[in-house]
């Protein structure tokens, strides 16, 4: 055996590598890692920073060339214009004795109200129907179950651009064009599979012995649900709702093709404003921040479920 003649120290030496076991290698690794970290963080975070500082610049400052990296005169002008234009669009000439005259044509508050209506409606539909289906798909064995699960998984992939034209045809046929109900139903259909996957994961992991214990504690099926399953499911239910809500809140394609400007939700409304002439970027940034706040609040809550929800539970967090 060769092992008899191998000196352990020598063998150890042969496994040394320049990158890992020498001082220059150590510093090179440090430089590489921190350089990469810095570069990537800048790429990811700078646009967000830019949105925030732009929102706090004055209208004259955003027109400066070259642009200023730090606002010279931080101002709430952008936010003021957003609110003023909404109030003006709402028919207010003055508000609490404050004269309103707005040259900006964007009614952000109305957009937000429309989006809320659509997103909450879609979220509730998806939550209720999705949870019921998930419970059965998790607890029962029956023919076609795998096919149904595959179908739902696949249906997560298609919505949006691939079906925008036929969806428009369908909604026209149903006489639902330019109605929020159409969006509620479509978003509900898009997000219900998400909810099914997420809640099925919850029910799959639900310990059977807890249900047995409830039966032993003399619970009827309804009482088991009311006092045991529902309280334990509440976190997953909230996460499911937020998922559905966020998707509806952010969706552009269907909102753009199925609504007229009068009923626009946030994404198409913002789009119209951004693509208008003389875009006032501080107002866009301010409006962007306002419409992003619900999203950021939601993110904090669903972070734990994020990967699981997105991959239909293929990857568990």
């Amino acid at each position: 055996m060769a092992a008899d003649t191998t000196d352990p120290a020598e063998e150890f030496g042969s496994n040394r590598s320049w990158l890992y076991d020498t001082t220059p290698g150590f510093y090179l690794r440090k430089v590489l890692i921190w350089g990469t970290t810095l570069g990537l963080s800048t790429f990811i975070l700078f646009p967000l920073y830019w949105m925030v500082v732009t929102a706090f610049k004055t209208t004259s400052e955003i027109q400066q060339i070259p642009p200023t990296v730090v606002p010279e005169t931080p101002s709430l002008e952008g936010f003021r214009l957003v609110v003023e234009s909404s109030l003006a669009a709402g028919g207010f000439d003055s508000f609490l004795g404050w004269d309103i005259s707005s040259a900006i044509d964007i009614d952000v508050l109305l957009l937000i109200a429309n989006s809320l209506k659509v997103a909450v409606g879609a979220g509730l539909i998806a939550l209720v129907f999705g949870t019921i289906a998930a419970y059965v798909l998790s607890q029962q064995e029956f023919r076609g179950k795998n096919a149904i699960m595959s179908l739902l998984l696949a249906s997560l992939m298609f919505p949006g651009t691939a079906i925008m034209v036929p969806e428009w045809e369908l909604i026209s046929t149903l006489n639902l064009f330019n109605s929020h109900l159409a969006l509620i139903l479509i978003y509900g259909a898009m997000t219900a599979p998400f909810v099914v996957w997420l809640m099925k994961g919850f029910f799959d992991d639900f310990p059977d012995s807890i249900l047995d214990a409830a039966r032993m504690d003399q619970c009827t099926p309804y009482e088991s649900f009311r006092y045991v399953i529902a309280p334990m499911a509440v976190n997953s239910l909230i996460a499911s709702f937020i998922f559905a809500f966020l998707l509806a809140w952010n969706e552009l394609v269907f909102a753009l093709t199925l609504l007229n400007q009068s009923k626009f939700t946030v994404p198409p409304g913002l789009l119209t404003f951004v693509q208008g002439f003389n875009t006032q970027w501080n107002v866009v940034a301010a409006a962007s921040i306002l419409v992003s706040l619900p999203v950021l609040a939601g993110l904090a809550y669903i972070q734990r479920y994020f990967v699981q929800g997105l991959t239909g539970g293929a990857i568990k967090g």
Binding site: D212, A213, M216, P231, M232
Partner: peptide, 20 residues
């Protein structure tokens, strides 16, 4: 007779305490 009507009590291996 359903479990809830038998008036029996059970202790489970994993305790099955209601976590909430």
């Amino acid at each position: 007779v359903k479990a809830r009507n038998r008036d029996v009590a059970m202790v489970f291996q994993n305790f099955a305490l209601y976590p909430h």
